[in-house]
Amino acid sequence: MSELDVLLVEDDEAIAGLIERALMVEGYRVACETTLAGAWMALGKQSPGLVLLDLNLPDGDGIEWLSRFRVAHSAPVIVLSARSQEHDKVNALNNGADDYLCKPFGLPELLARLRATLRRYQPHASAGGKLFCDSVVIDLQQGLITRDGQKVHLTAKEFQVLYVLASSPGKLVRQRELLQSVWGPEYVNDTHYLRILMSKLRVKLERNPSEPVMLLTEPGVGYRLNASF
């Protein structure tokens, strides 16, 4: 399977052409698909570092595709859509999008958001060490989480939040810090995103999610990871 920097899923040829050329000028390796079916086929051949996803595509809704994508893939996804309502943005983010950019947009903003998303997603590349809590092992160097010896699949955002907490085990990490590190500075007040994500993480990692011993909450302040090297 060959490596790919960006998978662009966009059915408007004019927009796709502009984005593809801009990305290639910046040195990114790009593959373009105009349908959701084509995007699935591309994933079988190439492993993208990031996906740019339109929502209104000829063969379906991008939100549904995104939800299925998140079951097996952790690459970050930036949604590019003419849908500008808040509920559309919340729906996309809750289904695994890392960012949401409304059309029309400028190429400089797109490139800036793409670089920012990749910076947030890739810090584990230089991290090292393993953390242990009960039956959970967090291998920061490999980007691998196991529970009872079985690999646990995390979404990109789930892994990013866990990475931030695991970088300072036992220490309180404030909500605003987590939101800024993982979602970006424009989301520092959107604590409901964090509550939803932490709930999902506990389901995946805790023996009893309603009585967590690993992912601890300081009500109204932040979270801490109870784990040791």
Rank of each mutant, 00 (worst) to 15 (best):
Ser2Thr: 15
Glu3Gln: 14
Glu3Ser: 15
Val6Asn: 01
Val6Met: 02
Val6Leu: 03
Leu7Glu: 00
Leu7His: 01
Glu10Gln: 13
Asp11Asn: 07
Ile15Phe: 03
Ala16Ile: 10
Leu18His: 06
Arg21Ile: 15
Ala22Cys: 02
Tyr28Cys: 02
Tyr28Ile: 01
Val30Thr: 10
Glu33Ile: 12
Thr34Tyr: 08
Thr35His: 04
Ala39Ile: 10
Met41Gly: 13
Ala42His: 07
Leu43Thr: 03
Leu43Lys: 02
Gly44Lys: 03
Ser47Ile: 08
Gly49Leu: 00
Val51Tyr: 00
Val51Gly: 00
Leu52Phe: 09
Leu52Pro: 09
Leu55Asp: 06
Leu55His: 07
Asn56Trp: 11
Asn56Leu: 13
Leu57His: 02
Asp59Asn: 01
Gly62Ser: 09
Gly62Met: 08
Leu66Lys: 04
Ser67Lys: 13
Arg70Ser: 13
Ser74Thr: 09
Ser74Gly: 11
Val77Ser: 01
Val79His: 03
Arg83Val: 08
Arg83Lys: 13
Ser84Thr: 08
Gln85Phe: 07
Glu86Tyr: 12
His87Gly: 06
Val90Cys: 06
Asn91Trp: 12
Leu93Met: 06
Asn94Lys: 11
Gly96Ala: 12
Ala97Ile: 06
Ala97Pro: 07
Leu101Ser: 04
Cys102Asn: 14
Lys103Glu: 03
Lys103Cys: 01
Phe105Asn: 11
Gly106Asn: 11
Gly106Gln: 15
Leu110Asp: 11
Arg115Phe: 03
Arg115Leu: 08
Leu118Val: 00
Ala125Glu: 07
Gly128Ala: 14
Gly129Tyr: 01
Gly129Ala: 01
Leu131Asn: 11
Cys133Glu: 12
Ser135Ile: 05
Val137Cys: 09
